[in-house]
Design a protein around this nucleic acid. Sequence first.
DNA 1: TGCCCACCTTCACAACTGAACAAGTGTTCA
DNA 2: TGAACACTTGTTCAGTTGTGAAGGTGGGCA
Lengths: 119, 119
Amino acid sequence: MWPVPDVPAIDPGKRAEAAAALHDDHAIEEWASRFALLADPNRLRLLFCLHRAPGIAVSDLAAACGMSDTSVSHALRLLRSNGWVRFQRQGRAILYSLDDDTIHDMLHRLGATHSNEHS
Amino acid sequence: MWPVPDVPAIDPGKRAEAAAALHDDHAIEEWASRFALLADPNRLRLLFCLHRAPGIAVSDLAAACGMSDTSVSHALRLLRSNGWVRFQRQGRAILYSLDDDTIHDMLHRLGATHSNEHS
DNA sequence: TGCCCACCTTCACAACTGAACAAGTGTTCA
DNA sequence: TGAACACTTGTTCAGTTGTGAAGGTGGGCA
């Protein structure tokens, strides 16, 4: 994976275990970039809305999240370019929906923990 | 939650559903900041290592992840200040472990999908 | 005591991000 | 046709982030 340096290890066993945890580096990079998209509160709000109210228009999304239309559009562009959402025109409105099973599941799990999270 | 504006909704029902999805804004912010910590590939690698090889020294962590000691130290500082890791001195070494159940579970789930992810 | 080693901190900097403003596209409807 | 509407795009800018160099701390060991 990496040219593991020959610097004497403090605990060779641990070092080997650790290295083994990184066997699929591609997957790690992918997850990191997924998390990057989830890391913005506004984007996360949008995703929750898309998750719970699929087929919603941009302006309604903006109103629900308390964001400007422009900000929402920018965010949706990002999500679109990552294939996380699908959309269809209906009259002048454009209706967006979540279109990624991985993210859908993740949001579902987070939503489930909403209730019992009162720290 | 927000002073939902009186701008005419395209679909009032959808707008209400969307707003309902955001009932626990505090939790959303919390998750966003968690995701922010997971969003860096190097940090994610470190976390996987800490997850699979608890009680590992900084230099071994650095070697396994192919990072400089300094970078690892910086990253650990962040994780420490968020209460994600615990550590203990052993001789000159300092051994780190993951110390957050939520993240532990999350990494466990991600690790499980490692194998069947060959996109 | 003095040296080495493992790790930490401070500082400076390039790269990236999110927010805001202005202008543009495509659709509907009078 | 043209005005209103829903949304998109381009651009700029302040603020944040990750990284590397240099120096500091403190435990172990001769």
